[in-house]
Amino acid sequence: MLHDAGRFLALVNPAIALLLALCFLFAWHHERTRPHLLQLGACYLLAAAAIGLQVLWPPRAGGGPATIAGALYLGSAALLLHGMLARIGARPDRCAGVALPLALFGMVAWFDLVHPSLVARIYVLNVGVALILLPGVASLAPLRTGRTVDRVLLWVFVVFALQFLPRTLLALAPGTAHDAAALLPTPCWLWLQATLALLLLALGLALLAATAQDVIDDLRHERDTDPLTQLHTRRSLEALAARQIPPRPGEKLSVLLCDLDYFKFINDNYGHSAGDAVLTQVGRIIAAGIRRRDIAARLGGEEFVVLLPDTPHEAALQLAERLRQTLEQTSMDVLPGMGNVTASFGVATLRPGEDLEALLMRADNVLYAAKNNGRNCVEWEREAGVPALV
């Protein structure tokens, strides 16, 4: 019974690793902008080869297959570390990424080909893999405050790395330390194989889930972000505004509309590429001039909007004037002879029972008044009793 279970588990582990490798390689084939998927696919491919090699040629006192299997295991660990860090834009240091795996490989080869010792190889491989992976935990620490899938991935990775330390002692249980064949039928060996299969699967699934969430978030960001200005789109603005309207009791919510002056003249005389460059720079100016909780969007063409949570009318007017002055004083290199552009602003504050559409309509009315009053100015609803800016 134990022998049959051992044979089954011996085949399950490389099968799981191979299946996960194919999943990562398939994902990389469709997402070439994510090179970490190729590294993770190669990681699981090497792991499948290493486990399969040990099934076909069990470790013995000297010979060579153990050296090859050791190289595959160490390479798999190094690729796992590289893939995990590459996903978040980090890189392992040279010691953990290159020097340590090479040193460990040298030790495995020594205790296989020169001074054969199964005990030493088990220590080197298990402790070595843990030493390769665990330093990466510090670089992966930002995942603790990330999305749920990132937090789960971090802890699965930590458990996966740590389990190689107790595996060393369990693998060297009495009666098996010097006889590799004795490992196969024992309950201890079966437990080690079962836990390895579960952890290989859990880590692979966590990585695939995180990758799927990355793709979804990127698609959502692409949908909700204007490609020229990197501000929100109107659709994104409406979704975010739904969380702010109505505002909390005692808070005011204001909005400012901004429309570039004579933008058609820019497109007609300098070309649409120059117009796009102007829009890009205006987007940067707006993004740099507002708070993190404010919501800036491009409504279309040369019109922008900033939704201002917890902002009374006077504060919104002051922000609009600051943005107007910054824009007026900013030189546009793509407009030789013109130098800079100006914009007209309309400011409105949410009334009780009003929705976003009604608020934007009132702001658009005062923006139209700013255009009629000579452009390059800030207008507001004067019946609100707000004093003029000085």
Rank of each mutant, 00 (worst) to 15 (best):
M1Y: 08
A5S: 12
G6N: 13
A17C: 15
L18S: 12
L20C: 04
H30D: 07
R32F: 09
R32G: 08
A42R: 04
C43A: 15
G62L: 11
G64V: 11
A66F: 09
A66T: 09
G70K: 00
S76Y: 03
A77T: 03
A78D: 01
L85R: 03
R91V: 14
R94M: 13
C95E: 10
P101V: 00
L102A: 14
A103G: 03
V108L: 13
D112Y: 05
L118Q: 06
R121L: 05
I122V: 13
V124D: 00
V127K: 04
A130L: 02
P135A: 02
L153Q: 05
F160N: 15
Q163W: 08
R167C: 04
T168G: 03
A173E: 02
P174H: 01
H178N: 12
A180M: 10
L183A: 10
L183G: 15
Q193C: 14
A194G: 14
A197R: 06
A197C: 14
L198H: 05
G204P: 04
A206P: 10
A209L: 10
V215K: 11
L219F: 14
D224Q: 15
L228Q: 05
Q230T: 15
Q230G: 10
T233H: 11
R235M: 09
L240W: 14
Q244G: 06
P246Y: 11
P249Q: 10
E251M: 06
K252A: 14
L256V: 07
L260I: 09
I266E: 07
D268C: 08
Y270N: 10
A274C: 11
L279R: 04
T280S: 12
G289K: 02
A296M: 10
A297M: 09
E302D: 14
E302S: 10
L308R: 00
L308F: 01
T311F: 00
L317D: 04
R324Q: 03
Q325T: 05
Q325H: 06
T330Y: 00
S331H: 10
D333Q: 14
D333L: 13
V334A: 12
V341R: 01
F345M: 00
G353M: 08
L359I: 12
L359H: 10
C377N: 13
